[in-house]
């Protein structure tokens, strides 16, 4: 039982969430079997819907990694959404702003600029925490609102497309991350990022420093690690991942930045990171699960006449069961519940 726990807790959490979701569906007058059938239909039934699931999962992996990595340093990055839209619009700017570049240069360049823009946005919260002690939970949320206003302004003023809509022009073809059949190649970038995060955390000195700061900041400082530097670096890498997620969305899915740009990430990054128990490789299956629900949501509305917001409730339930000690207390012994605490205290900086 002990060995199975890392996998068992998320699985039980998902099962419970789907079960309660079914009850909510039934109570609100829908047929749960039909609804879940439509959900699977819309996400896994054909090559095309699987491709769509992978497409949805890609930014979710990046957003999940952003949260998971920050958690490992004891930081709670709720700002994935803001970092993602900033990354998205900057990659769009590079994408439509340069003409005639070969694909091998243009696409990576747009991706890199988007990622760096996300990193810069993420590091603001890191700097405020490291130098001023402002808690990242509030600053990252506030920065989300600022980012949404800022990208909205950019898309309706300097980088506005012709026409009435507040959106950027379409990116050049040379900046697109192409589909390979119905398989979105951006997904491979996300998988590579997961492996990269795992390597960073487990095999590098920086990863050791990040984990040490996350587990015991005072001891890390005693050991000569600059806690401030690690906080800023972690938030920058976290933002880099989310920003890259936004860039992939721009270059691989939408083709430009427009209002409502992947509003779907929301708090999903947190759910995914916690389902994965903050393990970078665990983020992939967790993101696929949420991605499938997102992809199948519209089919559910179409076939079973269920509002797609039910997936928000199911995701909240998953988070409830995986992030709090409920499942551990119910299914495992009491003492093991103590491991759940992941974030650093409020007043500490």
């Amino acid at each position: 039982m002990r060995m199975l726990k890392p996998v068992a807790v998320p699985l039980i959490a998902v099962g419970l969430a789907l079960g309660i979701g079914a009850i909510i569906l039934a109570v609100s007058g829908a047929n749960p079997i039909e609804a879940y059938g439509a959900l699977i239909d819309g996400s896994l039934s054909s090559q095309k819907t699987v491709g769509r699931t992978l497409e949805k999962a890609t930014p979710l992996i990046m957003g999940g990694l952003a949260v998971a990595l920050a958690f490992r340093a004891g930081l709670f990055n709720i700002g994935g959404q803001g970092q993602l839209v900033v990354g998205g619009i900057f990659s769009a700017a590079v994408g439509f702003g340069f003409e005639g570049l070969p694909w091998i240069i243009h696409a990576p360049m747009a991706l890199a600029v988007g990622a760096l823009a996300g990193a810069a946005w993420g590091s603001i919260a890191g700097i405020l925490k490291a130098t001023r002690g402002a808690h990242e939970v509030i600053t990252t949320i506030m920065l989300n609102f600022v980012a949404l206003n800022l990208t909205d302004w950019l898309a309706s003023n300097p980088w506005k497309d012709e026409g009435i809509l507040s959106r950027t022009p379409a990116v050049e073809e040379s900046a697109l991350i192409p589909l390979w059949g119905s398989f979105p190649t951006g997904f491979l970038v996300a998988v590579a990022a997961s492996i990269g995060c795992w390597y960073l955390l487990e095999r590098t000195n920086l990863g050791f420093e990040i984990r040490s700061v996350g587990l015991n900041g005072d001891a890390a400082r005693y050991a000569g690690i600059s806690v401030q530097r690690i906080i800023i670096a972690t938030m920058a890498i976290s933002g880099l991942l989310a920003g890259a997620g936004g860039a992939i969305e721009t270059q691989g899915v939408i083709g430009r930045y427009e209002p409502g740009f992947n509003a779907g990430l929301g708090f999903n990054g947190i759910t995914i990171a916690l389902l994965a128990r903050n393990h970078p490789l665990g983020v992939i299956p967790a993101a696929l699960l949420i991605g499938a629900m997102e992809a199948g949501g519209s089919m559910m509305q179409f076939n079973a006449d269920v509002a797609p917001e039910i997936t928000d409730i199911i995701e909240a339930l998953m988070l409830l069961f995986v992030a709090t000690p409920i499942v551990v207390r119910w299914f495992f012994s009491r003492q093991e519940a103590a491991e759940v605490s992941v974030t650093a205290g409020w007043g500490s900086s």
Binding site: L274, L319, A323, T324, A338, V340, S341
Partner: peptide, 11 residues
Amino acid sequence: LQGDQIIAGTV
């Protein structure tokens, strides 16, 4: 349940 308070609030 003595869970993490910030995560509980996020839930």
